[in-house]
């Protein structure tokens, strides 16, 4: 918080932008982490919920009088709606949860790698539908003119809310039961835990938070295109969760900031920097390659991530979260 104030006062627009982006990704990473950290299942599909959330918010708030032109297929009540942006964000995130409830009811029956793959195919399904559903998503072209209400403080508010939701869930009996299934599926089942149900609960909550992240993303950039919500975003958000620490909420937050900082640094280097009169610039595309290599190195040499299993508490100091 203090850091943010400092950025707001001193940082100028560039740092403010980076901080905003980092916090939008924090919301998504926290959303993914609610499911991944507690269930131990790697999710390649959470970007689905960012996609659903972002478009659902656009349906309610986008582009003033142009909505009917971009998205003629929307039902009348949506074409007319003048929903306030925050209410729209809430409704959009709830829609993401509904998608998670319906799809999760099937996918959460799978375990391990099979579940990860099924989650990826969920993303593939939803992306294909949105790409071809021209009348409500503008298909393969972009939507422009989303209200730009996301600044650093909005993002901070959302990120804080996301962290609170995650902490409440982690501290709840649901969180504890799900972590039990993560540690030993057979033992948890033998103790009477309904694995499917516990996973589904976490999945729905995490979809809500990730959906909110997608909403922010759309209203931060002001434009939306379906193909943004595909492997690149999956990779970046997953990298955040892994770099920070796959099994910890603090890890997701730390990872979101670390990876955003790293990407922005590399992007700045791609644009070129002046060092003592000599301009140095990385070739474009170096950012993706460097990020992949760093992720591989972290997985090999510090697979528990930057913070490991530790959680930060509100009062400082760390405790073990297992």
């Amino acid at each position: 918080m203090a850091l943010l104030c400092l950025i707001a006062v001193l940082g100028g627009p560039y740092l403010t932008d980076i901080a905003t982006e980092a916090m939008i990704y924090t919301v998504m990473a926290v959303g993914i982490s609610i499911f991944m950290a507690n269930s131990g299942i790697v999710s390649f599909g959470h970007v689905t919920f960012a996609l659903v959330g972002a478009y659902a918010s656009a349906w309610q708030t986008c582009c003033a009088g142009m909505r009917g032109v971009f998205m003629p297929g929307l039902p009348q009540f949506l074409l007319d709606s003048k929903t306030p942006v925050l209410l729209a964000a809430l409704v959009a995130s709830l829609l993401a949860s509904v998608v998670a409830l319906v799809s999760g009811a099937a996918i959460m029956r799978l375990t391990g790698a099979a579940a990860s793959i099924a989650l990826l195919s969920l993303l593939f399904i939803v992306k294909t539908i949105y790409e071809n559903w021209d009348s409500v998503t503008a298909g393969q072209s972009s939507l422009v003119g989303l209200p730009l209400y996301v600044d650093m403080w909005t993002a901070f508010g959302f990120a804080s809310a996301a962290i609170v939701i995650a902490q409440v869930y982690n501290a709840s009996s649901f969180g504890l039961l799900l972590r039990a299934t993560r540690e030993d599926e057979a033992a948890a089942r033998a103790s009477g835990v309904n694995i499917w149900r516990q996973r589904l609960i976490a999945f729905v909550i995490s979809a809500f938070v990730t959906g909110a992240g997608g909403v922010l993303y759309g209203h931060y950039l002001g434009t939306l295109a379906v193909n943004v919500f595909w492997l690149d975003m999956t990779f970046v958000t997953l990298a955040m969760v892994v770099v920070g620490g796959m099994r910890s909420l603090t890890g997701a937050v730390v990872g979101a900031f670390a990876v955003t900082g790293l990407r922005q640094t590399l992007l700045a280097l791609e644009r070129g920097v002046d060092l003592g009169g000599v301009s140095i610039s990385l070739p474009s595309g170096a950012q993706e390659i460097a990020l992949a290599v760093i992720l591989l190195l972290i997985l090999t040499f510090r697979p528990q991530g930057l913070v490991g299993d530790n959680e930060m508490t509100w009062f400082g100091g760390a405790r073990d979260s297992s």
């Binding site: 131990g40 299942i41 790697v42 390649f44 391990g112 790698a113 990860s116 492997l231 990779f235 997953l238 990298a239 892994v242 796959m246 993706e288 390659i289 992949a292 290599v293 992720l295 591989l296 997985l299 090999t300 697979p303």
Partner: peptide, 17 residues
């Protein structure tokens, strides 16, 4: 001794690389 999820993510990283 990496576990299944670490391997899975690393293969995703290799693919992205």
């Amino acid at each position: 001794g990496a576990d299944g999820s670490t391997l899975l993510i690393s293969s995703f990283a290799v693919s992205y690389l």
